[in-house]
């Protein structure tokens, strides 16, 4: 039982990181139907900047996190303003290709600063890895932090989308772009906000993901781990923000159980935890091809 709770908790924490990564994808997809392949590298940049600010500039963790958020938000906004705005109305495929370009650019940028194999200490609010014991069950501080941070992010996004005029403009634009234009919503502002928000959640996700990598720190491969969130996004439905969170948590739990119980089902071989999320995704897609919360697109011919 204690094992089960531990695995659930670890799974939940991993799932929360996936949820944060998936949120970034979902926000941009919802606004503009573009899958942002640079989201993973935005995470890397966030983690890198936070770490740099904390250990080179000697900033406190909250300040370092803020600096990281500011940088990724700025990258998102600049990219939207100078690369994507010219592409409005062009085929989505071309825009997706440009995001792949940004992905390469960001990864190369960090590699030049950091080196291809260099490990960097992750910015973390804790001096060292510490744990909380509760009735024989062990909880890592960083996992608790991740879950709390994700809850705060989700609550903030919920309030933004449902209680502010900008949130309303974004939801309206996602539903019907022409109608949004007709009521006078500035669609370019909506795109910019989507990229800004995606940048912000990427920095938070990146810092937490790096901090969870353990004492070895992180390297430029961090961005690739965003791809682990892909089953979460597909599972939840690409254009659904609650779906991103639920999908992330489901995939995280799957990962947690698969890696936890792996030794008991050793006939499956090692590394089953990397396959399990995709299996869950496949099964869900067989039943619900649009994901758990994705909107069904009906195309009449």
């Amino acid at each position: 039982m204690a094992d089960f709770i531990t695995y659930s908790f670890i799974g939940l924490a991993i799932g929360c990181i996936y949820a944060l990564i998936a949120l970034g994808f979902a926000i941009i997809y919802k606004a503009s139907e573009v899958i942002n392949f640079a989201q993973g590298e935005l995470l890397l940049v966030g983690a890198y900047v936070a770490s740099y600010a904390m250990y080179t500039w000697r900033l406190a963790f909250p300040l370092a996190l803020l600096v990281a958020i500011a940088v990724t938000v700025a990258i998102g906004l600049l990219f939207e303003r100078f690369a994507l705005r010219r592409m409005i109305g062009r085929p989505v495929f071309s825009i997706v290709m440009i995001t792949i370009g940004l992905d390469v650019l960001l990864r190369t940028g960090v590699t030049v600063r950091l080196g291809a194999t260099q490990f960097l200490n992750a910015a973390t609010p804790f001096g060292s890895v510490s744990q909380v014991r509760l009735g024989g069950v062990v909880f890592n501080d960083i996992d608790i932090t991740i879950i709390a941070a994700t809850l705060v992010c989700c609550a903030a996004l919920f309030l933004f989308f449902n209680r502010t005029r900008y949130g309303l403009a974004m939801r309206a634009t996602a539903l019907d772009q022409e109608a949004a234009l007709a009521v006078g919503i500035d669609v370019r502002t909506v795109y910019a906000m989507a990229w800004g928000l995606a940048g912000a959640v990427a920095a938070i996700g990146g810092v937490l993901l790096a901090a969870r990598q353990g004492s070895g720190g992180f390297d430029v491969g961090l961005g690739q781990s965003a791809l682990l969130a892909f089953p979460a996004i597909i599972l939840g439905g690409l254009d659904s923000i609650p779906g991103a969170v639920v999908g992330g948590v489901l995939i995280g739990l799957t990962y947690g159980y698969a890696s936890g119980y792996e030794l008991r089902v050793s006939w499956l071989g090692a590394g089953f935890e990397t396959v399990a999320p995709y299996l869950v995704m496949l099964v869900v897609l067989l039943v619900r091809p649009y994901g758990l919360f994705g909107s069904r697109k009906v195309e009449r011919v």
Partner: peptide, 11 residues
């Protein structure tokens, strides 16, 4: 007011 109402159906 666009043809076909074009409301934001989920709002």
């Amino acid at each position: 007011v666009l043809e076909g109402r074009r409301l934001f159906a989920d709002l």
